[in-house]
Simulated assay, not measured.
Amino acid sequence: MTDSTHTHLLNHDGHIARVQGITVGHFTSQQRPTGCSVVLCPEGAVAGVDVRGAAPGTRETDLLHPSNLVQTVHGIVLAGGSAWGLDSATGAVRWLEEQGAGLNIGVGRIPLVPAAVLFDVMLGDMKIRPDAAAGYAACQAASSARPAEGSVGAGAGAVIGKIFGWQRAMKGGIGTASLTVRGVTVGALVACNALGDVFNPYTGQLLAGARTPDGQALLNARDALLHGLEPQPILAGSNTTIGVVATDAVLTKPQAHRMAVTAHDGLARSINPVHTMSDGDTLFALATGQSGQTLGMMTLSTMAAEVVAIATARAVLLAQSMPVPQQTVLPSWQELNHHSMRGERNE
C-alpha cells in the first residue's frame, strides 16, 4: 500500500540533468523492450567508475582508473542488449564528434564515452538490441529537461527479483534523483535490472521483487534465502544495476573514483541481495566542475549514496507492467500495489 514515504519518493523533484554541464537522453525501441540512455558532458567531466557486480559488461572503464592518463570524458552510455548493447556507445561517440567535443589529438578530437550494459535479451527477439544508431538517437534527444523514468531507455527491458525464476519476477526500470547543498548539485540516473528485491531506502519496506508461487504477493527473497529456500540457477550476467552519479563540484580523478565507490552504498540501501555473482553492478561518476566549488568528500559522498538510493527506488516505482512471451504479464509495483489495495477494500 502507498504510504507517505512512498509518496515522498514519488514526489521527489530532483533529477540528474540539474547538474550544470549535464544533458540526458533516451532511445526506446518500438520493436521489443530495450533501449539506451546517455548522460552527456560535451565540455568534459572528470570521471571515475566502480564495478561491484561479478558479471559486468563495460566499455572504456580502464581509462578511468585514477592512475591512468586521461582525466576527462565526454559522456556515459547505459544500455540494454547485454554485450551487443555496447555498440550504442559508438553512436554517442559519432554524435559528440559532430559537435566538436572530445580529446584534442591535433588532427581531430576523440570523444571518450565509457559504457555499461544490462541483460534484457530474454524479452522478445534477442536480435533486436541497441546499436550505434540507437546511441546517436539518444544523444539527439538529450536535454537538460527532466528525463523520462520507468520503462524507457536502458530501463525499458529491465526485470528485477529473478532469484526464484523469471515467472515470479517483476518489472524494473530507470530512475533519477538529485540533491543540492550550498550551490552544489549531485544527481543520479540508475537502470535497475537487479537479481534481488528493491526496498524503500527510508523505511526498509519491500517494494518489488520475487513474488510468491501464486504471483499475488511479494515473497521477500532475503528472508526466504535465510530460511533455507534454494534459489533457482541463474544465468551469469543476466542481471545488473548500472548508473551514473554526477556533480557540478570540482573534483580530482581520485575523488571522482571515491564518489563512484561510495555511491554503491545507495544500491545497498535499496537492493537486497546486491552485487551478486550474477549481477554486473557498475556505477560511473562525473564531475563537471561548473559550480566552481566543492563541499568536501564527506558531504558529496553522502549526497551520492542518497541520490542513488532514491533513483533506484524510483526506477521500480515508475516502471510499467509488461507482457512476456510464453509467460504471464510481468507486473510492476504500480500493478501489484493496485491489486493489494483492491484486495484490502474487498475484505
Rank of each mutant, 00 (worst) to 15 (best):
G157K: 01
L118E: 02
K127I: 04
V245Q: 12
H339T: 12
T185K: 09
A236D: 10
F27N: 05
T185Q: 13
A55K: 06
M122V: 09
A256D: 11
T58D: 10
T58V: 13
L189K: 11
A260Y: 08
N193F: 02
G228Q: 14
H65A: 15
V324W: 09
C41Q: 06
C36I: 08
D131Y: 07
P213Y: 04
T241C: 06
M259W: 04
P33W: 04
Q205A: 05
T312S: 02
A138C: 12
D279M: 14
V198P: 01
A83C: 09
A92T: 13
S238R: 04
G155P: 02
T252Y: 08
A17K: 03
D248V: 08
T282L: 15
L283W: 06
L78N: 06
E306K: 03
V245W: 08
G296P: 10
I163A: 11
A148K: 11
C36G: 08
T262F: 12
V274Q: 13
K171V: 01
L40Y: 01
G237Y: 00
L206I: 05
P66D: 09
H227D: 15
S332D: 08
V107R: 06
A210P: 00
I22L: 11
G14H: 00
L63I: 13
L189C: 15
A138P: 10
E97A: 02
V39F: 11
G35M: 05
E98F: 03
F199C: 03
F284D: 10
D125M: 01
T203V: 10
D265Q: 14
R146F: 04
L330F: 12
N68L: 13
I105R: 04
S88T: 01
R32P: 04
A177T: 03
